[in-house]
Write a protein that binds this DNA or RNA. Sequence first.
DNA 1: CCAGGTGGTCAAGTAGCTTGACTATATGGT
DNA 2: ACCATATAGTCAAGCTACTTGACCACCTGG
Lengths: 148, 148
Amino acid sequence: MQNSEAMALSAALLAVAGGLTQRINDGVIARGFEGVRPAHGFAFARLAPDGATVTDLAVHLGVTKQAASQLVDELVRKGYAERRPHPEDARARLVVLTERGWACTRAAEEAAAEAVREWSDLLGEREVRSLREQLLRIAPHGPLKPAW
Amino acid sequence: MQNSEAMALSAALLAVAGGLTQRINDGVIARGFEGVRPAHGFAFARLAPDGATVTDLAVHLGVTKQAASQLVDELVRKGYAERRPHPEDARARLVVLTERGWACTRAAEEAAAEAVREWSDLLGEREVRSLREQLLRIAPHGPLKPAW
DNA sequence: CCAGGTGGTCAAGTAGCTTGACTATATGGT
DNA sequence: ACCATATAGTCAAGCTACTTGACCACCTGG
């Protein structure tokens, strides 16, 4: 594959990702969750299963723990998460989603599903499934660095 | 398709996009172009064909023209672009790439091709081609907003 | 030819990150 | 049992890439 084709693929991928991010964010806000930014979504993804410590979150997001702590402050202030004492380590705190945090997560899923449905209209469900599997196979596993 | 599957697709897409962005940026820097950020790449893409005005660039990047102007300042200072008088409008300036700017663009293409080659190893060329065409068909056309 | 629109810059403010310094708690070797 | 070192988290200050607001130079149409 020529370099220019690789660049076309890259540009398309980044354009789709940027558009999807914006659509999810807009959709979440339209569902009544104000003051959320895309970065919060990545935090929610890590907090959702069982909660996480600030340091866990920092590694997951690829930022310093101070930045992660500020982000948690913000989520707490806006009612999406709360800090609890950690059951096994008195130094640490377990950050967990509130009910509102869970509702926001569900809203993000709905918004994502809406965008994906449009792709199905363009490509067909079969192609979207193959797209999903291809992406899952090439997705990296490291920290989810939003930087671009 | 269920919401959770849509979310899995979205997460994979964003992870791939984030990883690709980082790989391209790292690759460009490794080829000797210091002080470049991912945002510069999007600017280069708009400047490359025939140059562009600051306002064009601002629309393309989805930022204010002041921000675009600052970015151009930076590119000029680092030797990647230069401002010329606009041939048809004395208010405007045409921002064009320098030779170094073109070299940096080629470096980005090489880095992108490198990443895509790894995907070929995982998926096969045939699947990568189909990935490219699917993405091109669902890519939005608006401003290329890096925000997430 | 001048009224309003557009291209660009200057200046100041802001948000989200960084680095640096510190406290409190945990852990492992002696 | 104790102390040296590592780790979880916070506080404070600084930086950078953006924003909004104000402004000038030049274009365009009645």
